[in-house]
Simulated assay, not measured.
Amino acid sequence: MKDQCAFVYSEEQLNYKFSSHHPFNQFRLKLTVDLLERLHALDPKQIVPPRIATEEELSLIHDPSYIEAVKKAGSGLLANEVAENYGLGTEDTPIFTNMHEASSLLVGGTLTAVDEVMSGRVLHAVNLGGGLHHGFRGKASGFCVYNDSAVAIKYIQKKYNARVLYIDTDAHHGDGVQWAFYDDPNVCTLSIHETGRYLFPGTGNVNERGQGAGYGFSFNIPVDAFTEDESWLDTYTQAFREIAEFFKPDIILTQNGADSHYYDPLTHLSATMKIYREIPRLAHEIAHRYCGGKWIAVGGGGYDIWRVVPRAWAMIWLEMTENSHLLSSFPADWVAHWQPQAPVKLPQEWDDPEDIYPIIPRKAEITEKNLITLEKALYPIRSRQKSETKTTESF
Rank of each mutant, 00 (worst) to 15 (best):
H134C: 12
V151F: 09
I360D: 00
H288D: 12
V145Q: 05
R277A: 11
I192E: 05
W295E: 03
V8Q: 09
G89K: 08
L88N: 04
F247P: 01
F24Y: 13
T90D: 00
I251T: 02
H173Y: 12
K30H: 14
C144M: 02
K345Y: 13
D168C: 08
N98M: 01
L88H: 06
A6I: 08
H173K: 13
A102T: 05
E194V: 10
L327M: 15
H261T: 03
Y16E: 06
G210S: 02
H100D: 09
L128H: 07
A314K: 06
K390G: 03
E11K: 14
L42R: 08
D184S: 06
E285V: 13
Y166E: 04
P343F: 02
S383K: 13
E37F: 12
V145L: 06
D175V: 00
E322R: 14
I167R: 06
D304W: 07
N186C: 12
K376H: 10
L36E: 04
E393F: 12
E68Q: 13
H134M: 13
Y236Q: 06
S59C: 11
I296T: 02
I52M: 11
K345I: 14
E242P: 08
V298L: 00
K17N: 15
I296L: 04
H268F: 09
T227Q: 02
F330K: 06
G212S: 11
N147D: 02
Q339W: 10
K345G: 12
D115V: 11
K248P: 05
I251D: 00
E230L: 01
Y357G: 04
T32I: 09
F246H: 05
Q211T: 15
H40G: 12
A79V: 09
E393H: 11
E319V: 12
D175K: 04
R28D: 00
T367Y: 00
L77D: 01
A53P: 03
A83T: 03
L318Q: 01
E322W: 10
Q341G: 11
V145R: 00
E194I: 07
P64N: 05
P185D: 07
V48F: 12
N205I: 14
Y262I: 08
Q13A: 07
R277D: 12
C291P: 03
S191E: 04
L327C: 15
